[in-house]
Amino acid sequence: MAGETLHTPATLRARSEGIAAGLPGLLMSAERLAATILLGEHGRKRAGPGDAFWQFRSAQPGDARRAIDWRQSARGDAHYVRETEWQAAQTLMLWVDDAASMSFAAAGRPSKLRRAQTLALALAVLAVKAGERTGLAALPEPPRGGRAQLIRMADALMEGGEVPDYGAPRPRVMPMGSRAVFLSDFLGPPEPVAEALTAAADRGVRGVLVQILDPEEEAFPYDGRTVFESMSGAVRFETLKAGRLREDYLDRLATRRAALRDLCARTGWRFHLHHTDASAEAALLSLYTVLERGR
Rank of each mutant, 00 (worst) to 15 (best):
A200E: 05
G224A: 02
P140K: 05
T289G: 00
L38Q: 15
G18E: 00
G43D: 01
V96G: 03
G108N: 04
R270I: 03
M176T: 15
G177T: 11
R57S: 03
L187P: 01
D277S: 14
V227M: 13
G131D: 02
G25S: 14
V125F: 06
P171W: 12
F237Y: 15
A10W: 11
R152P: 06
E229S: 15
G233W: 07
R256V: 14
A130H: 07
Y249N: 10
A47P: 10
A168V: 01
T276R: 11
L187F: 04
L187A: 03
R236Q: 12
L197M: 13
M174G: 00
Y222G: 11
G108C: 08
R252G: 10
G167M: 05
L263I: 06
A130F: 06
L240V: 14
D51V: 04
E195I: 12
G76F: 04
S230H: 11
L119Q: 02
L23I: 11
A64Y: 02
V181D: 00
L39M: 12
H275M: 08
L121F: 13
A47S: 15
R225I: 08
P9Y: 07
R257L: 08
P61Q: 14
V227A: 14
G40K: 15
A10E: 14
F271C: 02
W95Q: 05
D51L: 06
E31L: 09
V235N: 07
A105I: 10
S29W: 00
T36K: 12
M93V: 03
P169D: 07
E159Q: 15
L139H: 10
L285F: 06
M158C: 04
R109W: 06
I68K: 01
L33C: 05
L284H: 04
A67K: 05
R172F: 10
L273M: 08
E281F: 08
P24Q: 09
M153R: 02
Y166C: 07
R75Q: 14
E85R: 10
A259G: 13
M28V: 08
L213Q: 11
D97W: 07
A10F: 05
Q87K: 13
E85N: 07
L285P: 02
R13A: 04
A47N: 14
L209C: 02
G294A: 13
